[in-house]
Structures are given as C-alpha cells and as structure tokens.
C-alpha cells in the first residue's frame, strides 16, 4: 500500500515540468535467465545475439522463392513490398536507388529484421538455417558475397557492406 505522504509527493507533476519523482514501490519481479534468453532476439553488428545455424545463397534462393518472392518480386527487385536488390542507380543519382546493397550499413540487420518481421504473412515461421540461407541469398543478389559462401554467426558480422561508412550520426545535436 502507498502511504499517504508518498501519494502526496507524487501528485501533480507534468513530465516536462518541475520535479519528477525518483522512486517507486519496487514491485518488479526478478526476470529469469530463461525468459531473457527466450525473449531477447536482438542481433548487433558485432554478431552478438546471432544463433547457431547456417546457410548459403543456393538454398536461400529456394527459401526466397517460397516465402518472399510473392511480395518482394523476382530477384528482390520489388513488387507490393520494398526493392531488396538490383539497384540501377547509385545513392547520388536523381532519384537514388536504396537497396540492401547500396544502402544498408550492416549485414546483421538483414538477419535480425527477417527473423523478427518476415515473411510478413507468417513472421517467426522460418528456422535459423532458413534465415541464414535467405540472408545469404539477399547478400548474393546484391553482389556482396558469392553464391556458395556459408553465412553463419561467425561469417555474417564480417561481411563488409558497401555503404558501411555512409551514415553521419546526428544524435540529439
């Protein structure tokens, strides 16, 4: 239960305003290792968070055709959903062409995003091997790796993306 004095000091402050209270009733439950492991699907550019498994563009092409092509088009050229490969112009053309190959700074983001959000009509349905394979295929379509290169937790963070240095971090300037 809150004590009355606690309630009083919490009242009537706006978020942009005067003073914000410092502490609460400390009711959070300890999170178990298991819960954290199951929920944490973040993959970082250095490879932190990548699971076991592997694949290459040869198998990835089959995954792509079965699960992605209907929205992203043949060879990732775009359809109802974004173009993923096959850029015809550079970033300084009018208009520019932004694809994984011309724009994305990190290869790990392809795996992370596909695992969390794709295929859009059945997110979370692909195995880790399928995810590595389709990631490899998208990198291959963009001319970044070879068709038979194995993509896994070791190799993916090492893939050098063409636009790796293309971003200026603005922050809160």
């Amino acid at each position: 239960m809150f004590s009355r004095s606690l309630m009083l000091c919490f009242c009537f402050c706006l978020c942009h305003g005067v003073q914000t209270e410092k502490s609460g009733p400390n009711l959070g439950r300890a999170a178990s290792e298991d819960l954290i492991k199951n929920w944490n699907i973040d993959v970082f550019p250095d490879g932190e968070g990548l699971p076991a498994g592997n694949g290459n563009a040869v198998t990835g092409k089959r995954v792509y055709e079965a699960h992605c092509l209907s929205c992203h088009g043949v060879d990732g050229e775009g359809s109802s959903a974004d173009e993923l490969a096959g850029a015809r112009h550079s970033l300084t053309d009018n208009p520019p062409d932004k694809t994984i190959g011309t724009y994305w700074p990190y290869a790990t983001t392809v795996f992370d995003f596909t695992r969390r959000a794709m295929p859009l009509n059945a997110p979370g349905s692909l195995s880790h091997d399928q995810l590595y394979a389709v990631t490899a295929y998208l990198l291959y379509l963009n001319g970044i790796i070879k068709e038979t290169d194995i993509i896994n937790a070791e190799t993916l963070p090492k893939v050098e993306m063409p636009n790796r240095e293309g971003f200026i971090q603005i922050g809160t300037e």
Binding site: Y106, T109, D112, F113, A117
Partner: peptide
C-alpha cells in the same frame, strides 16, 4: 542495435 528502422 542498428535495427532496420534506424538504418534502412
């Protein structure tokens, strides 16, 4: 984390 929505 360099998510898709802060890069692409």
């Amino acid at each position: 984390v360099m998510a898709r929505n802060e890069t692409a």
